[in-house]
């Protein structure tokens, strides 16, 4: 349900990387996700490109269509407009960055069609 956002997007939240290093959510870099996925025996990082952004069925929600990984599988997710995604080389981005910053004090860029987001998949799933 896109109703409640998880607390770990709140500025100052402590995030543990796969190598055990601790970082604040606002300080995370693309490399942190890439290196953590490389270390992880179970998880693999995928590139998910934003193909479409439509208004969702729930209030304050959007429907985002991604093309995921090498196979460019089409996946749709419905999230609240302030839900932040991590864009490669850019950082946290959402469909309503002002709202994300207001709620989480997390600086945030605008998520746009064409942005490539970090996503995960289980190793060996395909």
């Amino acid at each position: 349900s896109p109703v409640v956002l998880p607390p770990f997007f709140m500025r100052g939240s402590i995030i543990q990387l796969a190598d055990g290093e601790l970082k604040r959510v606002e300080d995370l870099k693309t490399e942190d996700f890439i290196q953590s996925a490389e270390i992880s025996s179970e998880l693999k990082i995928d590139s998910s490109t934003v193909e479409r952004i439509d208004s969702g069925q729930s209030p304050n929600a959007v429907l985002i269509q991604f093309s995921v990984g090498e196979l460019k599988a089409q996946v749709c997710v419905e999230v609240l407009v302030e839900y932040p995604f991590f864009v490669f080389g850019q950082g946290w981005s959402s469909c309503c960055p002002d709202r994300t910053t207001q709620l989480f004090e997390l600086s945030c860029a605008k998520l746009c069609v064409g942005d490539v987001c970090v996503s995960l998949t289980l190793r060996g799933l395909r």
């Binding site: 770990f8 402590i14 995928d46 991604f66 996946v75 995604f85 996503s119």
Partner: peptide, 19 residues
């Protein structure tokens, strides 16, 4: 202070979720 794992921050986008 709670510590959250890195992989909770980004979505699992599995093809099986399409459609």
């Amino acid at each position: 202070v709670p510590v959250f794992p890195w992989h909770s921050l980004v979505p699992f986008l599995e093809p099986s979720q399409s459609g």
